[in-house]
Simulated assay, not measured.
Amino acid sequence: MPDDNCTQVTQFTFSGLTEHPQLKHILFALFLGTYVLTLAGNLSLTILIRVSPQLHTPMYFLLGSLSFLDICYSSTISPKMLLDLPTKTKDISFAGCLTQFYFYTVFATAEIYLLAAMAYDRYVAISKPLLYEVVMSPNVCMSLVAVSYIAGFLNAIVHTSALLRLSFCSPSVINNFYCDAPPLFVAASTDTRFNEALVFLLVGVNIFASNLLIFTSYACIVVAVSRMGSAAGRRKACSTCASHLAAIIIFYVSGAFNYMQPSSSNSLESKKISSIFYTIIVPMLNPVIYSLRNKEVKHALSSFIRRKTCF
């Protein structure tokens, strides 16, 4: 039950990453560079996929959608964090906090399902190469992206609505650098067991559903690769999957560490580190992972640069 003397909160204060003045400047420069690289890398990859005819395939349509999603995902967290880093007071309004949480949940959930859709795309490309363009038609690709966003919006609506039932007494400090469920639960003045159970349940359902598609797709890929008579074919198949697997492992491990455990003030510091990784670092790494290991992207970039140079 809420305290009768409780003054309902109109704004929250973030604890932030550090109070050390010199470390603040170092972190600001580091995360500003990371955010700029995130925007530049994902935007460049999105534009390259759009302007390069050789990349107009289902695989790169999904990859371009992932890059756009990473721009949105990172932009819900990084700008506010960068503004707060040099300042002493790191405030955000109650409505602003819920808005940030809502869109963060939308994009994080959509990314889970989009990564699963990309696993299905790799399964079709390797197991049914002759039917690839038919099975992964433009309508199917757009539907997979749309379903990912619909899942994100529905998940965000449920969690944001559940947060509205909680009471927060003013002044209220969030032990984090952005509005996320676990630190909000700790800051609440009412019982959060329902909300924690809801997070644990829905995160579990989302991870199980997406992982089921991922594991099934890769199980079929392993069977298809084992039946290939050509060593070159096996290497090419493994190469196309390696980048996707790396992106999945990085995103899922850091995300699961943050959500699949009870909220407590003692665990928030370790969760803060994992939050930095998957909200700031992962969106920057995805275009690097897919570009450095992908010959088609490198070739398309070289062709694009040559065309611009000649022009």
Rank of each mutant, 00 (worst) to 15 (best):
T216P: 04
F153A: 12
V186R: 02
P21F: 02
A117H: 10
L163Q: 11
R307D: 13
L62D: 05
M118I: 10
N294I: 00
S74P: 04
G255Q: 12
F103A: 00
A231T: 11
L27F: 06
T34C: 12
S172F: 02
D84Y: 01
V36T: 11
K295N: 12
F208N: 02
M81W: 13
Y259P: 00
D180T: 13
N195V: 09
V222F: 12
K88N: 14
D4I: 08
L131V: 04
V134T: 15
A246Q: 08
T99N: 07
R122G: 05
P182Y: 14
S274K: 04
L69I: 08
N294D: 14
R227T: 05
V51I: 14
S303W: 03
F200E: 08
S291T: 12
V205R: 03
P2A: 07
G152R: 10
N155Y: 14
F304R: 07
C310I: 15
Y113R: 03
M59K: 11
G229V: 05
M1P: 06
N139Y: 10
F257S: 04
P58L: 08
V225P: 04
T76Q: 02
P79I: 05
A300F: 01
M81R: 08
F185S: 05
A146N: 05
V147H: 08
Y252N: 12
G152P: 06
T99L: 10
I71Q: 10
S267E: 11
M142G: 14
F14Y: 15
R307G: 12
N139L: 13
T38A: 09
